[in-house]
């Protein structure tokens, strides 16, 4: 379980997260949504130990998060720079050497699923293929927590679809939990169990996607607009 207790994060004078509290159960795919600057990426970085809270605490499986959490948490960054001098095969060997939970057989399956070739050099990959590769190596870790920061941004519909299908195929929700930040809500909605809606560094609400459809007769985007309008549900 992920627990965020009264967490604030300040950068100089700007507050990126403001007294956030939230509990997330395991075995689900959870979307972290909200407008630009609402604190989505900061939240993921705090969960992965890349940032430390200014106040409050972040617990994963009842343990306080430090940089060591990376042993049970796979983090996909939205940064574009990615081991340009490696071939795909070398990248896989590298990941294998870095992460005890890296599943090489699974990696080869996902590489094949994504129609990538082992001998390809990363610096010559198209942007779409580079992102397919990033997802492939991230999902190849049998880590209990997978955090994906904007996995779809700037990618064409075919790549987005391949990534979505790859997630359905290769994530094992009986042992894994996935958190995704995204603006591509419509596309991701069918694979989400829950959404966490942020605004101005605060958690407005956490709710099950099917409950939102059932209770309000709305998809997530329309629901989000409503919540933003009223400031509440």
């Amino acid at each position: 379980m992920i627990e965020v207790n009264n967490v604030s994060k300040r950068f100089l004078i700007t507050k990126s997260l403001d007294n956030c509290s939230i509990k997330l159960e395991t075995g689900k795919i959870i979307g972290i949504i909200g407008e630009n600057g609402s604190g989505k990426t900061t939240l993921l970085k705090l969960l992965s130990g890349l940032l430390r809270p200014s106040s409050g605490d972040v617990l994963i499986d009842s343990e306080k998060v430090t940089r060591r959490i990376s042993s049970k948490l796979a983090y996909l960054t939205d940064a574009d720079y990615y081991f340009p001098y490696f071939t795909i095969e070398e990248l896989i060997r590298y990941y294998e050497s870095q992460f005890a939970d890296f599943d090489t057989e699974k990696a080869l399956q996902i590489i094949d699923f994504m129609k990538l070739k082992l001998e390809q050099k990363i610096k010559y990959l198209s942007k779409g293929n580079r992102n397919r590769l990033k997802i492939a190596v991230t999902l190849s870790r049998n880590a209990p927590y997978i955090l994906l920061d904007e996995p779809f941004s700037g990618l064409d519909p075919l790549v987005r679809k391949a990534i979505l299908k790859g997630m359905i195929q290769f994530v094992d929700l009986s042992t894994q939990t996935v958190l995704i930040t995204t603006h591509e809500i419509k596309e991701v909605e069918p694979i989400l169990d829950e959404v966490v809606l942020l605004r101005d560094g605060r958690v407005l609400v956490k709710q099950s996607v099917e409950e939102i459809r059932e209770a309000y007769g709305l998809d997530i985007v329309s629901w989000m607009e409503k919540v933003y309008e009223k400031g509440d549900i």
Binding site: K165, I168, P190
Partner: peptide, 14 residues
Amino acid sequence: VREYAVDVGVNVNT
């Protein structure tokens, strides 16, 4: 369950 999930593009839990 997984085949069907991939086929229609939804979460395995669904």
